[in-house]
Design a protein around this nucleic acid. Structure first.
Length: 259
DNA sequence: ATGGCGGCTCAAAGCCGA
């Protein structure tokens, strides 16, 4: 089974690319971030025609996440618990069923958090604290659990082209990394890093020739519970997608699992 | 990154992302 994450930076602008990529790769389950669309305007029929079940948690102009699955959804939950006042659409969770049992997947768009001297940074940290609380609860189920999406976290030095340029940014500083480490210490494994100990980026800025110069960072992750990690076979970063016509600034990351 | 690009929007210039 292939489970993928992709921050598409706007479904309206990216629909032809997403459609092309799905046809080429036929992943079982895709978590999309930054659909930048309300639920009513999401082009679900396009994906349904390709055989996908579609669930969205949209928002006007900004954020918004979606799930596309070739397998029926057994359960879908929208919004990260823990703060009733949070109106940003950044979390959607589902359960799909396989003969061997359920597989639980959460698609997340973790807040960027910049600039760090504004309310955006504590919002990011609070969101991560809520994610940790939620993950602790879900891990008690001892199911295959994959929390995947745009984490807006650079896990380590190997994941940036320029440590000095990024260190101190909301994506790469102690308060953010401490919380990412907490998630790891709970038993969530960084799938890419578990199978590949080399430089591997998932994002290149639109600006300053970042793609041309390979000035990238790795911020899109598949974090796997022990029961999911047991079935992890490989992880592919579809880097070529960044070089296509009218690309997103993120590329798809695909986990291959033996379930 | 003192933001150069790109997407979004009450549709021009401003907000947002990372």
């Amino acid at each position: 089974m292939q489970i993928a994450t992709w921050n598409i930076n706007g479904i309206k602008a990216r629909l032809p690319e997403v459609e092309y990529w799905l046809k080429e790769n036929k992943p079982d389950l895709v978590c999309l971030q930054e659909i930048k669309s309300i639920d009513e305007n999401f082009p679900r029929e396009v994906f349904e025609d390709l055989g996908y079940n579609v669930e969205t948690h949209g928002q006007k102009s900004f954020n918004g996440v979606a799930l596309l699955s070739l397998h029926p959804f057994e359960e879908v939950n929208r919004g990260l618990p823990g703060d009733e006042t949070d109106e940003q659409a950044r979390f959607i969770e589902c359960v799909i069923s396989r003969p061997a049992g359920p597989i639980r997947v959460a698609g997340i768009y973790l807040p960027n958090g910049n600039p760090v001297d504004t309310e955006k940074f504590p919002y990011k940290l609070g969101w991560m604290d809520r994610l940790i609380t939620w993950a602790k609860d879900r891990l008690l189920l001892e199911e295959p659990l994959i929390i995947t999406g745009d984490y807006n976290i650079i896990p380590e030095r190997l994941d940036t082209h320029d440590h000095d340029a990024w260190w101190g940014d909301a994506l790469y500083r102690p308060e953010s990394l401490e919380r990412f480490r907490t998630l790891q210490s709970l038993g969530m494994t960084d799938a890419l890093r578990a199978v590949n100990n080399k430089e591997a980026y998932t994002f290149w800025d639109f600006q300053a020739g970042a793609w041309r110069k390979n000035n990238g960072i790795r911020i899109d992750h598949l974090m796997c519970s022990p029961q999911a990690t047991d079935h992890l076979e490989s992880v592919e970063i579809h880097k070529d997608v960044r070089g296509r016509e009218k690309p997103s600034d993120h590329v798809p990351v695909v986990g291959h699992f033996s379930f």
